[in-house]
């Protein structure tokens, strides 16, 4: 029966650099194609409210009359459904995951 089967692996890893990074001092590498923070190109938005109606978590609030587009960052689950349904294609999920939110206020564009 083999004893201490892991010795080779442990010895090898003793001389390697750690795989962990010292976040937040060293930011995480952005993975292309990752679903991160939702961005809106507000100049192209026509305030049709489709994204607002479709969002499964009701994170969006689009005001047609006052032309305001608001998002509750804490509610958004970065699912990308709004990005798919937007007729003007002015929504985009960036690979970046943004900074931690400290308030519960909605972000207005």
């Amino acid at each position: 029966m083999a004893f201490f089967q892991m010795k080779k692996m442990i010895l090898a890893w003793t001389f390697r650099k750690p795989v962990t990074t010292s976040y937040p001092f060293e930011p995480r590498k952005i993975c292309p194609g990752s679903r991160g923070r939702l961005d809106v190109k507000i100049s192209e938005c026509i305030f049709c409210t489709i994204c607002d109606k479709r969002c499964p978590t009701q994170a969006l609030d689009v005001d047609k009359v006052n032309k305001k587009w608001r998002i509750d960052r804490l509610r958004c689950i970065s699912c990308g459904y709004c990005v798919e349904v937007c007729p003007k294609k002015c929504l985009l999920l960036t690979g970046d995951h943004g900074i931690p939110t400290v308030t519960k206020e909605m972000e207005t564009f």
Binding site: V19, C31, G33, S34, R35, I77, S78, C79
Partner: peptide, 18 residues
Amino acid sequence: EQVLDLIEATTGGRVIFG
């Protein structure tokens, strides 16, 4: 972690693939 990276690159999510 390496498998999660594969998943993230192909689906956009790490554990919730969506």
